[in-house]
Design a binder for these strands. Structure first.
Length: 745
DNA sequence: GACCTGCTGCGGCGTG
């Protein structure tokens, strides 16, 4: 890198540094950076040119943020130089999936931008209204914002959007992987498109992520219809070394004759908590549990161990049900790095927030997915070049007389290993391109109608579908959607045929919950000593006298105020973590289930297993072969027939509907399909007949499915549209036929 | 037995 001020570098090939604005060069120089990181070196040219969309893919802590902002700030300053004055209006828009990430980025960007005279404005639900109205009166610089807050701008200040973004030069989408293939992602695409429509100009988009599985799909997401022209910048720098261990635990499976028992969880949790306590104390760590309830349970167990040992409590919970104050306390304790603290958390601490040096990461139970596990791992080993340390805790039942053949397969462990193998091979989940995201389209139609105070149907289709992100929605489908929205009084037509929000539509738009594309549930506020400590979903089993574990403490319920939705608590001695009911778990992808089968069939034993896990792994593999899974996929046990397709949840759902259509009583349980009281031969015949049939229309299968409502505005879809949304989201007919042929063979 | 994310306007009240 050349020095600053520039001196005698003439003749040297122009590196990225030489392309940056002198003001930005000065900042880099004063930081003492000896050279730019690979991602920064490669991204500067394309971003600075300002005529192309760019994806920057680099490992966590690979310098992605600066890779985007060094050239963006350079381009803005160069524009000012050309005009001889500072350009007004928002000139760069940064979109983040998390408020906490915006706060974090605000601090980092201020450091760069303050000296350059580029103001930076955070904008989300926790930002004071006064700040927002100030930014609106005289907009300038960089705006850091959530998709929901952009939605609110369109709905509440539709006429100001064109002026606000009139001089926009760049759009940055951070943690882009978290938007791919989701309702929220479709909302984001629509909002970006609507900004460009409002200012009648295309604005270069910069997407950032460390965990993209497929650059073609990611590029198509960033610029729908023109993904092929998106520039991909991939850092060649290797990520941190990973130090990885899977720890196995066993527990005695409850006797099925005695009914369901909760002892299973208790026994595991106590043993795992004891190991966590012994290993993690004295340093900063993150422990990821798979549910809020588990977060509370483990925090409580760990702090009881602290109390028994007479040492300070250093385990704190962090999840979405805790109040903003409590979460921020945990985040600042992690950042401050003064006294050791371990956060037990859900995915809330998975992304972005730079929480400083974390010695290790623990994961309890099979990880939700490959990208999620990579993000969690990326929280450790960020600063000093030390290894990222990950321990995964897996529990399996001890085989006794009561153990089922399925118990002996050790599927939790093989699931975990399959995800880890995919992580080590960089095989992240692929976004699903086929979903029409009709629920989000309902929201966007209402939002556009509110933005303009009425709109013609043809314009609406042009804006959102024909030239917008909902390209798979044709005119006929769109017309049906408008009709069903009319029937539900979401829309009405005025004398000129323009569409306006109807009475129900007005209600939706005028409630602040409108801005999210995802579901939100009714919740009770938990209050202790006059302070709100968090919230939990309405649960009828909670009443005065109930005992609760929440926010890492133990409480008794004093009072439940149904009308105001408030639960009053007082400190108490015992209790259980509340159930945060609702939502299913994450989808298990086809790639993971196929990788599980690959692990059973292989002869290699992963090196990252501890002794107990290795024994469980070997037992699982032995059971797989003894039970005949290598040769067959149909088995009988206890009057039921079990089918093991070893395929993803969508294929399992599709097979379930197909078999139910043949008059069989069938349910998907984990990796197996359970069919009631039939002989395997009979089922084999049915499967063979199905395999020989032509593929059915997915819509026909969807019609037969129950429980199809899934996304926020699905309740306003006609039966036919709901079937289409479900078919695209939940079914995989070609995959199911591949699987049928495999099983019937 | 199973994640998470996010959110406005306005009235009422206290303080400088």
């Amino acid at each position: 890198m050349t020095s600053w001020p520039p001196s005698g570098s003439e003749g040297a090939p122009a590196g990225a540094y030489d392309l940056l604005h002198p003001g930005v060069q000065k900042w880099v120089y004063e930081k003492g950076w000896r050279r730019l990181r690979d991602a920064q070196e490669k991204a500067t040219g394309p971003i600075l040119a300002g005529d192309t969309d760019v994806i920057v893919a680099a490992a966590t802590a690979g310098g992605k943020t600066e890779a985007a902002w060094l050239p963006i700030c350079s381009a803005l300053l160069a524009e000012d130089d050309r005009h001889g004055q500072r350009t007004r209006g928002v000139r760069a828009l940064y979109l983040s999936p998390l408020k906490a990430l915006i706060n974090d980025q605000h601090q980092r960007l201020e450091d760069l931008c303050a000296g350059l005279g580029v103001p930076v404005h955070p904008w989300h639900g926790d930002v004071a209204a006064a700040h927002k109205s100030r930014a609106l009166t005289d907009p300038d610089g960089v705006l850091l914002i959530t998709p929901e807050s952009v939605e609110a701008l369109f709905v509440n200040r539709g006429s100001q959007v064109a002026k606000l973004f009139g001089n926009l030069r760049y759009i940055v989408v951070d943690e882009m992987h978290s938007f791919l293939g989701t309702e929220r992602g479709a909302q984001l695409q629509s909002l970006l498109h609507r900004i460009e429509l409002a200012i009648r100009r295309r604005v270069p988009r910069v997407g950032l992520s460390a965990t993209l599985g497929d650059f073609t799909a990611a590029a198509e997401f960033l610029r729908p219809g023109a993904g092929a022209r998106v520039e991909i910048v991939q850092s060649a720098e290797a990520g941190t070394q990973i130090s990885l261990q899977v720890k196995g635990y066993t527990f005695t499976a409850p006797d099925p004759a005695l009914g369901r028992s909760s002892r299973r969880g208790d026994q595991n949790a106590a043993a795992i908590a004891a190991h966590l306590f012994g290993t993690l104390r004295g340093a900063n760590n993150l422990v990821f549990a798979n549910s809020r309830r588990d977060v509370e349970t483990y925090t409580d167990l760990l702090n009881r161990l602290c109390a028994d040992a007479g040492v300070p409590q250093e385990f704190v919970p962090h999840h979405g049900g805790l109040s903003k104050e409590l979460r921020e306390q945990v985040e600042s304790r992690l950042k401050a790095n003064s006294a050791p603290v371990t956060a037990v958390c859900t995915s809330t601490l998975e992304m972005g927030v730079d929480i400083g040096a974390v010695a290790s990461v623990a994961q309890i139970g099979a990880p939700a997915g490959v990208a999620a596990l990579r993000q969690r791992l990326g929280r450790s080993g960020r600063r000093d070049g030390s290894d990222a340390v990950l321990r995964v805790y897996v529990s399996e039942p001890e085989p006794t007389g009561h153990a089922t053949p399925a118990d002996r397969l050790r599927t939790e462990l093989f699931h975990t290993c399959a995800v880890i193998e995919m992580l080590l091979g960089g095989r992240y989940e692929l976004p699903d391109p086929g979903s029409p995201h009709l629920s989000t389209l309902v929201q966007q139609i209402l939002s556009v109608a509110a933005q303009h105070g009425g709109v013609a149907a043809r314009q609406l289709h042009g804006a959102l579908c024909a030239h917008g992100p909902f390209t798979t929605v044709d005119q006929a489908t769109f017309a049906e959607l408008l009709r069903t929205m009319g029937q539900h009084e979401l829309l009405m037509q005025d004398a000129d045929g323009r569409l306006l929000p109807g009475s129900r539509g007005e209600e939706l738009i005028n409630h602040y919950g409108f801005f999210t594309a995802f579901h939100t549930r009714a919740e009770f506020r938990l209050v202790a000593g006059g302070e709100t400590i968090g919230s939990m979903p309405v649960d009828p089993s909670i009443m005065a006298g109930s005992l609760l574990v929440f926010a890492g403490r133990r409480w008794k319920v004093l009072n439940v105020e149904d009308r105001q939705r408030v639960i009053e608590l007082t400190a108490a001695a015992g209790g259980q973590a509340p159930r945060f009911l609702g939502g299913g778990g994450p989808e298990v992808t086809d790639a993971v289930r196929q990788a599980m089968r690959g692990l059973y069939l292989s002869e290699d034993v992963p090196r990252y297993l501890d002794r107990a896990a290795r024994r469980l792994f070997q037992e699982g593999r032995d059971a797989f072969h003894q039970q005949g899974h290598a040769e067959s996929r149909i088995f009988t046990w206890g009057g039921e027939t079990l089918i093991y397709p070893w395929r993803g949840d969508r294929i399992m759902t599709t097979l379930t509907i197909l078999l139910a259509g043949q008059g069989l009583e069938v349910a998907a349980t984990g990796p197996a399909l359970t069919v009631q009281s039939r002989t395997p031969d009979r089922i084999h015949d049915v499967l063979q007949q199905l395999a020989a049939m032509p593929h059915p229309d997915p819509l026909e299968l969807a019609r037969a499915a129950a429980d199809k409502r899934h996304d926020k505005y699905d309740e306003y879809l006609s039966q036919d549209l709901l079937d289409r949304a479900y078919a695209a989201r939940a079914l995989d007919v070609p995959g199911a036929w591949e699987s049928l042929l495999e099983i019937a063979r």
